[in-house]
Amino acid sequence: MPKDIDPKTGPRHVAIIMDGNGRWAQQRGRPRLFGHHAGARRVREIVSACPELDVKYLTIFAFSTENWKRTQAEVAGLMRLFRRYLEREARDLYEKGVCVRFIGDRVRLDDKLVSLMDELELRTADNDRVHLTVALNYGGRDEVTRAAKRLAFEIEQGRLTHDDVDAETLSRFLDTHVLPDPDLVIRTSGEARISNFLLWQSAYAEYEFIDTLWPDFTKEEFARVLASYGGRERRFGAVPA
């Protein structure tokens, strides 16, 4: 672990909005999908770096509910990339002790991709070195809406009453119910918005917006961002002692 990262003050759960693949490719005169492939290779490096950097939970934003608005060719290419990534990386993720989960609405995804997702979750379920969560066809508002529908159904069935409903109860119906809330959210590419990502869970997260495009986001820069987080004071609405 880099000497300037203290595991006692570093983030346990880091979430990343991996932005900038398309621009990275365009800067090189290549199609946008070329950048997405480079971004997928960067995911491998960052996941591999997590144990050394004492990051136990890593959540990455791979495809949003709004990304369907992109061209049909780009969406189809991304879906092929997701399938190929899962096929190629499954063994390596398992052997490195990575527990993989997926969040988001799977209804719109094709059957082959969903099958690969299910298989990888099952295969890595007992791993505990790093917990990698991939947000695929995910949107924060969509997630809360789906959670509210499930909660309403439980009330209709008489298993809950309206008096049982509080923030903790709703959290149990979110896609991330088995995960701790993120401590730090990083967005690459210079954009300073959260783009409907982990809206509920990030209520008290620290944010870091960096100019680096995702395919250029190295392990070393990741370590620098984590070290910077260690110098922040998180008060969760309280006054410093």
Rank of each mutant, 00 (worst) to 15 (best):
L113Q: 10
A152I: 02
L113F: 11
Q27Y: 05
N196E: 12
A167I: 07
P182I: 11
D175V: 05
I16R: 04
Y138M: 01
K8S: 12
E168K: 15
T218H: 08
L120P: 01
E191I: 06
R193C: 14
P182D: 13
W200Y: 15
M18A: 14
V225Y: 01
Q72I: 05
L136S: 02
R172W: 05
D4Q: 13
A135N: 09
E221G: 01
W200S: 08
R141G: 00
S195F: 09
I103M: 08
E66F: 07
D181M: 08
D118H: 08
D163L: 05
K69L: 09
S48L: 01
S64M: 07
L132Y: 04
L151G: 03
E45R: 13
R28C: 09
A135Q: 06
I186K: 10
V165D: 09
Q201N: 14
R23Y: 11
Q157H: 11
R41Q: 14
L109H: 11
T71S: 15
A223E: 01
R28Y: 09
R129W: 03
G140P: 07
K69Y: 02
I5D: 00
V239T: 13
D183E: 14
C99D: 02
R80Q: 14
I186S: 12
I210Y: 03
D128V: 04
S189R: 11
D181E: 15
S228P: 00
A73Q: 14
T71H: 06
R80N: 14
T161L: 05
H131D: 02
T65W: 02
Q26S: 13
V134M: 15
P240R: 09
D181L: 08
R101A: 04
M79D: 03
D4P: 05
K96W: 08
R80M: 12
A125P: 03
T145K: 04
V98Q: 11
N196Q: 12
E154C: 01
F236S: 05
F82D: 06
G190V: 12
K112E: 14
K56G: 00
D166E: 07
I17V: 15
C99N: 13
G140C: 09
F197H: 11
K149P: 00
R141I: 04
A147T: 02
D216Y: 08
E45I: 04
I60D: 02
D216K: 06
D175K: 04
R106T: 11
P215Q: 07
R193K: 15
